[in-house]
Amino acid sequence: MAEVDPQLLDKIQAATRAAWHAADAVQAYAEQIAAGASAASGGAIDPFIFRLAIFALAVIVGYYVVWAVTPALHTPLMSVTNAISSVIVVGALLSSGIDPSSGNDSGIAHVFGFLALTLASVNIFGGFLVTERMLSMFKKKG
């Protein structure tokens, strides 16, 4: 068996011990942070985190799905992403549902809702229809 320098062994032991302590400290910090976050949100995970998670995952899904789109269809891709962006109609419908006579600035809010709904409707109908028009032109040989 090869001779091992006892000093080296000592050094390794010391380093291992230091790493062990560091890991302990990290764990303690992590627990403290988690406890703090949990206290701040009343013991539960803030719902914002869930929204953020969905958003982050959707970005990643979007990344892979869009790279899979054939370059020949990049224009329809743009028009269809445009069409689906008009799902902002959800917000427009909510503001259109506000009773304009319920005081404060509800009248103004209602007007903004009407305008947003009109704009979103242009996109919903125009976006999907023009995409369909383009896609219907793509034909195979023969």
Binding site: I54, V65, M78, S85
Partner: peptide
């Protein structure tokens, strides 16, 4: 729906 769509369109 808006969060997912926004993320899709943004990355696209």
């Amino acid at each position: 729906a808006l969060i997912i769509t926004g993320a899709l369109v943004g990355s696209s």
